[in-house]
């Protein structure tokens, strides 16, 4: 076995040039699997998304929503619960590229930690809806509270994801090398997602209107943005990995 021994008088930048990301594309496939599970689980099987009029609905309406096709909702939430962690490899890969190839160790850690933190509340969302679907025959107010709690975990905790977007954005723009690792559009795209996601931080105030968790700026814009961001992340990271491995 031979070791690549770096010379003592070396800089982080020269070390970074030798770092390879073999098999890193599996991170991207794993993220695609997570998106697949989300679409199958909470959009197709358990129609939790989109929440038509639920922010202002009565407790009885929400309870009836959980009573109807209860088993199907439970199975959908199972799939969501199983699929959620498969996003972690993508965040880890982006963090490692930022740390090792772009030599921005703190930004890389912030990106990964904020990503994990946002993902934690996606689990909490599934747990809340799963609990609501667990005993739908209980008094409707409790089911309603659990359902609202799930939505607040899902959308209101956007602030963690906003920090993640911000750190990626800073990293893309501070990369002044001649062959940048991430394309410029990816930086601007993240900045745009920051703008789209920001209104999600005030959904706890409204029951109706665009800022409610079923409204235009509380649901449609941030979630369309979120799925577009998953796709953009996968494309940009796959491109970056290919470029890095070809160059090395």
């Amino acid at each position: 076995m031979d070791y690549a021994q770096p010379s003592i008088l070396t800089t982080p930048t020269t070390l970074a040039k030798d770092y390879k990301f073999d098999s890193a594309l599996f991170s991207v496939y794993s993220a695609a699997f997570m998106v697949f599970c989300t679409v199958l689980g909470v959009i197709i099987l358990a129609p939790m998304l989109p929440p038509f009029g639920q922010a202002s609905a009565s407790a009885e309406t929400i309870a009836a929503f959980y009573m109807e096709a209860n088993l199907q909702k439970k199975i959908g939430l199972c799939i969501m619960m199983f699929g959620t962690p498969f996003l972690i490899p993508l965040f880890a890969l982006v963090g490692e590229i930022m740390k090792r190839r772009m030599v921005m160790p703190v930004l890389g850690s912030v990106q990964f930690a904020a990503g994990l933190f946002g993902l934690l509340f996606t689990f909490m969302m599934t747990v809340c809806w799963g609990t609501a679907a667990f005993r739908p025959e209980r008094s409707p107010e409790i089911t309603q509270a659990l359902h609202d709690l799930g939505w607040l975990f899902a959308t209101w905790v956007a602030s963690a994801t906003l920090l993640q977007l911000g750190s990626i954005c800073v990293a893309v723009f501070r990369d002044k090398s001649t062959a940048p690792i991430f394309p410029k559009w990816f930086g601007y795209f993240n900045m745009w997602m920051l703008v789209l996601g920001a209104p999600a931080c005030v959904i706890n105030i409204f029951h109706t209107g665009p800022f409610a968790y079923d409204g235009l700026l509380g649901f449609w814009v941030p979630y369309a943005g979120l799925f577009a961001w998953f796709v953009a992340m996968m494309l940009a990271v796959a491109g970056a990995v290919k470029r890095l491995n070809n160059a090395a």
């Binding site: 410029k184 559009w185 601007y188 795209f189 745009w192 703008v195 209107g209 235009l216 700026l217 814009v221």
Partner: peptide, 26 residues
Amino acid sequence: VEPEFWLLIFGDLFVFSAMFIAFIVA
């Protein structure tokens, strides 16, 4: 600036347009 920058400006304008349409509809 650079062409990619306008993705951000038009993106933001797009969201505000959606908000204005929501206002008019309401």
